[in-house]
């Protein structure tokens, strides 16, 4: 269990998130949604302990995250960012190998080499193995980074370093930005597979409400630094709330298996109530 308790984070006097209390259960894919500036990335960075909040605390399995050392944290927590630049020419394999850095001393051992190969095969980036990371496209880079990040959390039966470890925490900050539609869906499926492991706690930020509705088992909706709603897609994504938080007019279209598909319209053509709210903003 991952829990944020009464988190407030400010830069100067400007609060980015205010009194956020939310918890994330293992085995489920949690997605955080909200308009620009709602505090989604800030929440992810606070959860991942990159940012230290001014008030409140983050607990990993009941332990205050401040009490964990950097090295120990890196063995159980990984973060996928929007875009990762490499300063010098590095091979793709070397970039993926970085995921194993918290697990070995100065040089990778046979386990690290094997797990890295395994992860690269799983994420279908083996073909890029010896390519210079800098020459990859944005989408290819993101797939490589997804492999790197999961390499950090990868556990196999034959890996002695993983035995008896606790939960694995994966955070994703708008991971789909540079992916085409096929790779977005592929990515979400792989993510879901990881998230459904009993020892995995996964929290991601996405912009596409339809992807969130389709793949998330739990949704947290943020608005202006506060939790607007939390629960399953059907509980959270109500017309009223979408109207209120995102300022758009949703239309729900039933689709055969995944339930509904959402269409959006700008508030100008929406009902008067939305326009009135727009003025009072």
């Amino acid at each position: 269990m991952l829990a944020a308790r009464n988190i407030t984070f400010r830069i100067g006097n400007k609060p980015l998130i205010t009194d956020v209390t939310v918890s994330f259960a293992p085995g489920k894919l949690h997605l955080v949604i909200g308009p620009n500036g709602a505090g989604k990335s800030t929440l992810i960075k606070v959860l991942a302990r990159l940012l230290r909040p001014q008030a409140g605390k983050v607990e990993y399995a009941g332990t205050d995250v401040r009490e964990t050392s950097e090295a120990e944290l890196a063995r159980q927590r990984a973060v996928l960012s929007q875009a990762v630049d490499v300063a010098f020419p590095l091979s793709v394999r070397e970039v993926v190998m970085m995921g194993r850095y918290p697990h070995f001393g100065s040089r990778p051992g046979p386990t690290d080499e094997r797990v890295t190969d395994e992860v690269m095969a799983f994420f279908e980036v083996t073909e890029f193995r010896d390519r210079n990371y800098q020459t990859l496209s944005g989408g290819e880079r993101q797939r490589v980074n997804f492999a790197r990040v999961l390499n950090q959390l990868w556990r196999t039966d034959s890996d002695p370093t993983a035995a008896g470890s606790g939960f694995r925490y994966l955070f994703l900050d708008e991971p789909l930005t540079f992916l085409d539609i096929r790779h977005q869906i592929d990515f979400m499926k792989k993510l879901r597979r990881f998230a459904n492991a009993a020892d995995a706690i996964t929290v991601g930020v996405v912009h596409d409400l339809n992807l969130a509705a389709r793949f998330a088992e739990q949704i947290v909706m943020l608005d202006d630094g506060r939790v607007a709603a939390a629960g399953t897609a059907t509980e959270v994504l109500t017309p009223d709330r979408i109207r209120q938080v995102f300022g758009v007019e949703p239309t729900f279209v039933p689709v055969k298996e995944s339930g509904v598909h959402l269409f959006f319209d700008s508030p100008e053509v929406a009902q008067t109530s939305v326009c009135v709210r727009g003025i009072t903003d």
Partner: peptide, 18 residues
């Protein structure tokens, strides 16, 4: 050397790698 390698992908990412 390993930590300097991690720094190649950025300070934030290096932090996430411990």
């Amino acid at each position: 050397a390993k930590q300097l390698n991690a720094l190649m992908i950025g300070e934030e990412e290096a932090t996430y790698l411990g």
